[in-house]
Amino acid sequence: MYKLVLRLDVGSRAEDFTLKDFNGNAVSLGSLIGRGIVFLTFYRGGFDKESVRYLRALADNHERLKDLGVEVVAVTPELPEKARGTAESLSLPFTVLCDPELTATKQYDVYDPSMEWCWPAGFVIGEDGAVQYVYRGVSPPNTPPVPYLMKKFEQMRSPPEEAAGRAAAR
Rank of each mutant, 00 (worst) to 15 (best):
P140I: 05
S114D: 15
D112S: 11
G24S: 11
G46L: 03
Y135I: 02
V5Q: 15
K66A: 06
Y43A: 05
V5S: 13
S91G: 05
E81S: 06
W117M: 09
D21G: 12
R166F: 05
V72A: 00
L102H: 04
P100I: 05
M115Y: 14
E81N: 06
G11S: 12
F94D: 01
R166T: 03
A87G: 12
V131W: 08
Y133F: 13
L8C: 08
D60S: 11
V96G: 00
G129H: 04
D16W: 09
M115G: 13
L149P: 04
A87C: 12
D48N: 12
K151Y: 01
E63I: 01
R13A: 15
D128M: 09
L102N: 03
E162T: 10
G30F: 03
G129Y: 04
M156N: 04
P77R: 01
P147C: 02
E116R: 13
D112I: 07
E154Q: 14
V138F: 10
A121V: 13
G122A: 15
Q155I: 05
A169R: 12
F153W: 11
D112Q: 09
G46P: 13
V27C: 02
A57R: 08
P145N: 08
F94S: 01
R7Y: 08
R53E: 05
E127T: 12
V70A: 00
R170P: 06
I33W: 05
R170K: 14
Q132R: 15
F94L: 01
S12D: 10
E116V: 10
N142M: 11
K82S: 14
K49Y: 12
D16K: 04
D9K: 13
I125E: 07
G85S: 07
S31M: 02
L79V: 14
G36A: 09
T86W: 00
E88T: 07
L102V: 05
E78G: 06
L8P: 02
I125H: 08
A57K: 08
C98T: 14
Q107I: 11
E127F: 05
Q155H: 06
E162K: 10
P145V: 02
S12Y: 07
R64I: 03
S51N: 02
G45T: 07
Y111M: 03
E15F: 08
D112F: 14
Y108P: 02
G46H: 04
L92P: 05
L90W: 07
P77Y: 03
T143E: 04
Y54D: 02
L8K: 13
M156K: 09
C118K: 00
D99Q: 00
F17M: 12
D48V: 03
E71K: 11
A83T: 01
V138P: 00
V110S: 02
G122V: 06
V134T: 15
S12T: 10
V110I: 06
N25C: 02
L55G: 02
L102I: 04
D109F: 08
F22C: 12
G46M: 04
V5M: 14
